[in-house]
Amino acid sequence: MLEHRSSHLIGLLLPLADRTLILPNVAVAELIDYQPGAFDLDSPPWYLGQVNWRDRKIPLLSFESACGQKTVIGERARIVVLNTLSGRPNLKFIALLVQGIPRSYKLDSQLSYVDVPLCSLEKAAVQVADQVAKVPDLLALEELLVGAGLAL
């Protein structure tokens, strides 16, 4: 007898200064302590420099700033290291500034979409428990780095 299995995905809710992002947990390589990135003043405001992670330097981005808001580095700031999707050999990981520790959440196939304004780096907004979470466009984040010549 076959057992009926509903489709569940574990998502991670990433707290930002002005919104919450949601990603499948397989998109996240690691959560690390905040460290200031090394950058020059000619960089775009969303580029927070390069941080060291596992003997490599990876680009650190502010999602809020890339969406036109101000970068906030709060006292609970952390860095989430994301696996990239494009397969570019020179861009395997991207670091994203978050404000606190991500929480895991079991998602089911019955996600309800919410009609709210989205920035160009957001694909959708969904209702997760009592909050709205935005689905980031990870390929667009990669393209942002490549377009600015920062995918080193």
Rank of each mutant, 00 (worst) to 15 (best):
S104H: 08
Y47S: 05
G74L: 00
L41Y: 08
V72E: 11
L23E: 09
L118S: 03
Y113K: 11
H8S: 04
S112Q: 15
L85M: 12
V114A: 10
V98M: 02
R103Y: 00
L111V: 08
G11H: 02
L23C: 08
L16W: 03
S43G: 05
L48S: 04
L121C: 06
L96T: 12
P45R: 07
V28L: 12
H8P: 00
S62M: 06
I32P: 03
R56W: 02
Q50C: 11
G87K: 09
H8M: 05
V26I: 11
H8T: 10
S109V: 09
A95F: 10
N25R: 11
K92A: 06
P89F: 04
W46F: 15
V116P: 01
S104M: 08
D55I: 02
D40K: 06
L14F: 10
A27F: 07
C67S: 13
L9I: 15
A29M: 06
W46M: 07
D55Q: 15
C119S: 14
L23R: 03
D33A: 13
I79V: 15
P59D: 11
L60A: 10
Q35K: 14
N52Y: 09
G68T: 05
I79N: 09
P45C: 02
Y113M: 09
G68V: 03
N52V: 13
G11L: 02
N25L: 14
